[in-house]
Design a binder for these strands. Structure first.
Lengths: 336, 336
DNA sequence: CTGAAAGCGCTAACAG
DNA sequence: CTGTTAGCGCTTTCAG
């Protein structure tokens, strides 16, 4: 293995000069830098990560905790993870993958052993048991999602309340008077995952504000459930002309179910969704939707973390404004 | 930070004794071990990962390279990753997540810097550009999938050829005489991803062996494509009564398409698939399938790696035997 | 069965 | 602008 002393000797300088040439933490003359760089190239030198971590108290590794549980949309998690890795690399960091399963012990383990410098935690609950731990840790963290109190922590996510509102406002503008929200599976609400509830809040508030009749339906992510909820909606709200779907796997089955029940989208029924853009684009009738911007959330989360690692202050809460794209699934309410 | 010397002092022993108590690399008296363990507990000691890595030349971290490209089934990748992390933890290892995007440089970076002890590489191509690198690396690796030559490397995957055969044998046993394979998107074949081609080989060989008429249809993973290919199949092979689907996202849309074309499954058409079990279970008609056992592959990959890290020899190729589960989508051919 | 001590390879004062 | 040097915290000979 070629080490820093080898490079130093080869370049005719001291090890510290090589180190500084690499880190840029002190000025190096043009000529010296050139010689060092050449020696590094010629010898194929790579600093030893462990030695670096030991000497500098920085591992340049971030931990990413991914959820496993029911009701989370796997491709979204994956896209998020990839975006975290990609962005972390731009800041010369790597990413250690942890599962939710390891729980709080996992978090303290990787921080206490100095394996990682900072943490990104996904799928945060309103009263997440990890909150006290994250507060007490000496290392910075960023949470995806919003707990009941973000005091002393840093959170980021799509503004799901505004997303719910945006969908309803859009439907209201198109003249719809009766709307329904088909939401996440019941267990998601029971766990008090903030984002699901915030969609409901936004949906309901906007409906009330606009004088729309509205109802909310948590729903399992199975095709049968789609059929069921579609039937129930038509039975209970015959005047229904606008639907907001916040349940990724259900989007297509639900549209199918409505069409099989004789409703044309968007002629008879306008459908909007809160979901990743790719998903909204794929159904036969592309769906007007508010994007769940996983990649952007991942990028921004890493950026926040980097600023914290740099000692900067960052806002406790970062809400990404919803971005709605009109596609073919919404239209003006047909006047009876 | 509490360090090993603190623990040693607290327990009235030397640092090396603490180290050995922790690693078990030399015998420790009952009494001493007790005192050390208590000191560790009382002080909340955690060994510094970097210091360990430096002193022992072992980071206890594995790299996992995940693919990003089109045509791969994201939930499968995710499930695999989770199983790798979970299994790695059982062996006291962590997992560093790398994207395919980083390419060969990424691999050499994490090994040269001694960030990781070993590598797991997914989505291996027949003539994967990373093969020479993996061979030259001084650290063990395991590849998911099979390249043209596994000489000097270690590979593991489902035996896709046998899987293709199993599907056809099953259909043949049920009396079907004309079968078709709806395969992965064309780009997957173009990239020469071995698994896709091996399914074709197995499918074709078994069909020929059983005297069945057969055809193969690579297919985009879009619902429209499902409709198209369904129509084409019926047009070109009117006698078709058995279909093998090796294209996860297409499974449901394809069944829908057949049914919309007036074919009942399994009364008129038997459908089998090669896909994760969860996917086969979810359609209205649960699908007889050969499981793509991502979790098992992940577990086994880590186990292979651990054996290699332990200096043991492992087979170059590990083919997991296909496991078929009969569900509702296949039946005896109706005699005309 | 245990201890002393020499590094592992790098960073960051400190000194010039 | 550069060099010297003292650690960072742990593992592992070597010695007993």
């Amino acid at each position: 293995m070629v080490k820093i002393t080898d490079v130093a000797r080869h370049a005719g300088v001291s090890p510290s000069t090589v180190s500084y040439a690499l880190s840029g933490k002190r000025p190096i003359s043009e000529e010296t830098r050139r010689r060092v760089e050449e020696a590094i190239r010629e010898l194929g030198y790579r600093p030893h990560a462990g030695a670096r971590a030991l000497a500098s108290s920085k591992s340049n590794v971030l931990a990413l905790v991914v959820p496993l549980r029911a009701g989370i949309h796997v491709p979204t998690v994956m896209q998020f993870a990839v975006s975290v890795v990609t962005t972390a690399r731009r800041y010369d960091h790597d990413v250690l993958l942890l599962t939710q399963e390891e729980g709080e012990d996992g978090l303290s383990r990787v921080t206490d052993t100095a394996l990682v410098d900072a943490l990104i935690v996904m799928d945060v609950q309103l009263h997440d048991p990890r909150l006290p731990l994250l507060r007490s840790l000496d290392r910075p963290s960023v949470m995806i999602g919003f707990p009941a109190s973000a005091e002393g922590l840093t959170c980021i996510d799509l503004d799901f309340k505004a997303a719910g509102e945006a969908c309803v406002e859009h439907l209201a503008r198109l003249g719809h008077r009766t709307v329904a929200l088909v939401g996440s599976p019941p267990e998601v609400y029971v766990r008090q995952t903030a984002f699901a509830q915030r969609v409901v809040q936004g949906f309901t508030a906007a409906a009330d504000r606009n004088g729309l009749a509205s109802s909310v339906h948590p729903c399992e992510a199975a095709p049968d459930a789609a059929r069921e909820v579609a039937e129930r909606l038509l039975r209970e709200q015959p005047a229904l002309t606008g639907v907001v779907v916040h349940n990724e796997p259900l989007l297509e089955p639900l549209i199918d179910a409505f069409e099989q029940l004789g409703l044309r989208v968007p002629a008879d029924l306008s459908v909007t969704a809160i979901c990743p853009d790719e998903l909204a684009e794929s159904p036969r009738v592309p769906v007007t939707s508010v994007a769940v911007p996983s990649a952007e959330v991942g990028t921004r989360a890493v950026e926040l973390l980097m600023r914290k690692l740099g000692g900067a202050d960052v806002p406790e809460a970062t809400l990404l404004a919803p971005r709605m794209t009109e596609r073919g699934s919404t239209g003006r309410r047909a006047v009876a």
